[in-house]
Design a protein around this nucleic acid. Structure first.
Lengths: 321, 321
DNA sequence: TAAATAGGTCACAAGGTCAA
DNA sequence: TTGACCTTGTGACCTATTTA
């Protein structure tokens, strides 16, 4: 039975999720026509609410990936469908980050074996999150977000684990910094304001710590990276064929899709910035260096920290060895 | 890894090239259905561009050779697939002739030892070609074109070298004359207009020189040889079992394939010219005499010329001893 | 008799169409 | 706007044929 409409039987996989033919067409139409309005009763609709039906599609992990038309400046339907899809996926991730908890402590490899979206459960109102919980929910919602894309699902299990393991943390840092920009902060912090660095860190300068908190956020503020740019850029960055130990076929898949995603970003830049498009494109790509630098600083800090006091209760998704 | 899709692993040789099963079926379907449109972005498409995928098949050297149905006038699928394939191979040769250079100076025997297509590199824009360069690129693109066919690949190395050595130049002359016809010229010349005969030739009459320039082109103009006829005719001419020193098995292979190719040409003539088909067929075959005459005139001219002034820098593919 | 390759078949997913 | 139905391209898998 189709998990979206609960009425018709599943016809097979469509846009990455098991659903019926009607819901497949519904999803496609919404992406291309974008004729959707907010739900009047804030979710929990019973029937016939197009907004809630679409949200169910997103929750079920439906993703649209264009394969052509990304060079045709007169046909931007595919690009705008992609962006529309991505922005709803990202809203869903943000909702989960702020309103959900995740039970258990799986490894990335275990998560890779799960078909379909991860299962979160509601966070009690006024639940007080500590630093470790913020770190975990940020990571696991990032994994859930990234796991949906077609290029991830096309990989074999081993390649998928490699890809997710070596990208989800970078993606988390990137979302943290976009949140900082949205809140007009020049440093990253968790949604409730919790500092991303634990208080008792020793052996490094304040300057170093502030680099972690601020470097990426500052650059993103400087460039005024838009939501759309962030969404496309994340696809380009984290569909990375250059990761070590990938199989040849996995590398081939990621290569092909990275080209698609960067074409989409380039088309977006050309449309939005006209003759300044190409330089904007390269400016955006350069952000990756700062993400990588920040990740390395954090991992240095982590190593230093565990030397002082052996780490207890570190969630398994953060075990990279 | 399949060099065409870069995603799946090679399943073996299919239609003369190493590729995966999916690309094999793709190639076959395109030949038989011809459901292909030009690429919007002129190459370098990522995935899902059927035109670019097919062009990659052609570049990889994929060739279809019918083995039956060439006598069944109600089933022309094989013939039209063959012609479709040949015309794309020929476009590729023409593209290389006009836009590429070849590095090195191999002998024909060395070229015969190379598996798969030869490697060309892009010719700089506005690069000025001299006569010797035109002669070389014409010869080497002809060799690349001829080398792909199944009857060539089935031969042992020695037979293959004999066949190519004694046919590629005739094929070049033939393509030169087809180009003359396309440009409404009554004489052959290289694509940029360079004369095929070097200026300082002495000891022969202008009449003799003009025979080389014009005789074949004139006959082709007179017969109004079509592209399709040229493509099939070239296969018949240059799958020649009568060459000296071939092994018995090589001779047998060439004999069988020449029959296939001439059946294809005959079927084409019968379909296109109805009751005039047989006479058209013999008219076309008679063109070979003129190719041979032109080749002999050129070689006489060459010998005469090297007697006056020893030849320096002659490319090794043109050393026929 | 085992391999390699040409060619056939079918279920699947993307996307289009049209009556309700 | 919807969803049943249709068309198309695809690729995994199968079979037939040939040759070492």
């Amino acid at each position: 039975m189709c998990s979206i409409c609960n009425v018709r039987v599943i016809s097979g996989y469509s846009y990455g999720a098991l659903c019926c033919g009607a819901c497949k067409m519904f999803f496609r139409r919404v992406l291309f026509v974008k004729n959707i309005e907010n739900c009047r009763r804030n979710g929990n609709c019973t029937r016939k609410c197009r907004y809630c039906r679409f949200k169910k599609c997103i929750k079920a992990g439906m993703t649209y990936t264009p394969t052509e038309n990304l060079f045709d400046m007169n046909n931007t339907d595919s690009l705008s469908a992609l962006i529309f899809n991505l922005s709803h996926q990202e809203s869903h991730r943000d909702f989960q980050l702020n309103n959900c908890l995740f039970a258990g402590d799986p490894t990335v490899a275990e998560l890779c074996r799960i078909q379909g979206p991860l299962t979160f459960y509601p966070r009690p109102i006024n639940y007080q999150m500590n630093l470790a919980e913020w770190v975990f929910i940020t990571g696991i919602t990032s994994l859930d977000y990234l796991k949906k894309f077609i290029h991830v699902n096309m990989l074999n299990e081993s390649d998928r684990a490699i890809l997710l393991k070596f990208t989800f943390f970078d993606f988390s840092i990137f979302t943290d910094s976009m949140r900082a920009q949205n809140r007009n902060q020049e440093y990253i912090s968790f949604p409730d304001g919790t500092d991303v660095i634990k208080a008792e860190v020793v052996g490094v300068t304040d300057n170093f710590i502030n680099g972690i908190r601020c470097r990426l956020a500052a650059r993103i503020n400087e460039l005024k990276v838009t939501k759309e740019e962030f969404l496309l850029l994340a696809l380009v960055f984290f569909c990375n064929p250059a990761l070590p130990n990938l199989s040849d076929s996995g590398r081939g898949i990621l290569n092909s899709y990275q080209k698609i995603y960067s074409s989409a970003l380039l088309q977006y830049c050309l449309l939005t910035y006209q003759q300044l498009g190409p330089s904007r494109f390269t400016d955006l790509l350069s952000v990756y260096q700062i993400i990588a630098k920040t990740r390395m600083d954090i991992s240095y800090l982590f190593i230093l920290n565990t030397m002082h006091r052996p780490c207890t209760g570190l969630k398994k998704i953060y075990v990279f060895r």
